[in-house]
Design a protein around this nucleic acid. Structure first.
Length: 227
DNA sequence: GATAAGCAAGACTCGACCTA
DNA sequence: TAGGTCGAGTCTTGCTTATC
């Protein structure tokens, strides 16, 4: 008998991080949900290893990680780190010298001046942003949700389901007969997770109607549901 | 043990190209 | 000409490895 797969879904803040949720730089980030950048509402999420990710559409202009000693490091993708407005904000904020007001001021200035390419805030980006704020018929609580496995081989093994493989074969046959775009490889990220008023988990895959692989969305959802 | 850096995989958009 | 496909480029994520 084989061992069960070591799988985890780690989004909860650690005990060390929890006090930071109501004060300091982390609190400042959590209140960004009402803030708009490039026409998109910001979307703040907690991630593993006590990271806070601030999304704007499909991109992530702010990543904050709280270190075990209480220091806070601000980073983001190279295209944002290279912008002038990131100076004085990106980098290490030491706990013993951390001025909350100064942090908020730098954060506001950065968000005010940052340039985000329109491709991240149009189409699916704008939809992601809008959907992150809805309260009915369900309430989203996570995006780009991924299950973690103990290793890549474990992940590949655990993601194989006969039902999904059968459906994939049938869709592929349909694709060939209809001349649709190439079937993409198996995905592993759920666009959004939500919970409905009855406590049921809602799995959401977002695609723009003009995307060539839109026909593939139900197959992706089938994979996520089995996983 | 904690952290940083590098890598692979998968997502998306855009533009070039092809075909009806 | 319009619509679809494909490849390049970029970003995000998780895993692995190196360093302190």
């Amino acid at each position: 008998m084989s061992n069960p797969a070591m799988v985890a879904y780690d989004r909860a803040p650690s005990k060390k991080l929890r006090p930071s949720l109501t004060t300091g730089p982390i609190r400042a980030l959590l209140s960004l949900g009402e803030h708009k950048v490039a026409g998109c509402h910001l979307d703040v999420h907690l991630r593993r290893k006590d990271e806070v990710h601030v999304y704007c559409g499909l991109t992530r202009p702010v990543v904050v990680r709280r270190k075990s000693n209480g220091d806070v490091r601000v980073t983001a993708a190279k295209s944002y780190a290279q912008q002038v407005c990131s100076r004085g904000f990106f980098g290490l904020w030491q706990q013993d010298q951390l001025d909350e007001a100064a942090f908020e001021q730098r954060l506001a200035k950065y968000l005010e001046s940052i340039h985000i390419e329109c491709r991240w805030v149009r189409r699916e980006g704008s939809v992601q942003s809008a959907w992150s704020r809805i309260a009915e018929p369900w309430v989203p609580f996570d995006r780009e949700a991924v299950l973690e496995y103990s290793s890549t081989s474990e992940r590949n093994r655990s993601r194989c389901f006969d039902a999904v493989a059968g459906a994939r074969e049938r869709v592929d046959a349909l694709r060939v007969s209809q001349g649709w775009a190439q079937l993409p490889k198996r995905g592993g990220e759920v666009d959004q997770l939500a919970v409905d008023p009855d406590g049921r988990l809602v799995v959401i895959e977002l695609k723009h109607a003009s995307a060539s692989g839109v026909y593939y969305a139900p197959l992706q959802l089938l994979q996520y549901v089995w996983e």
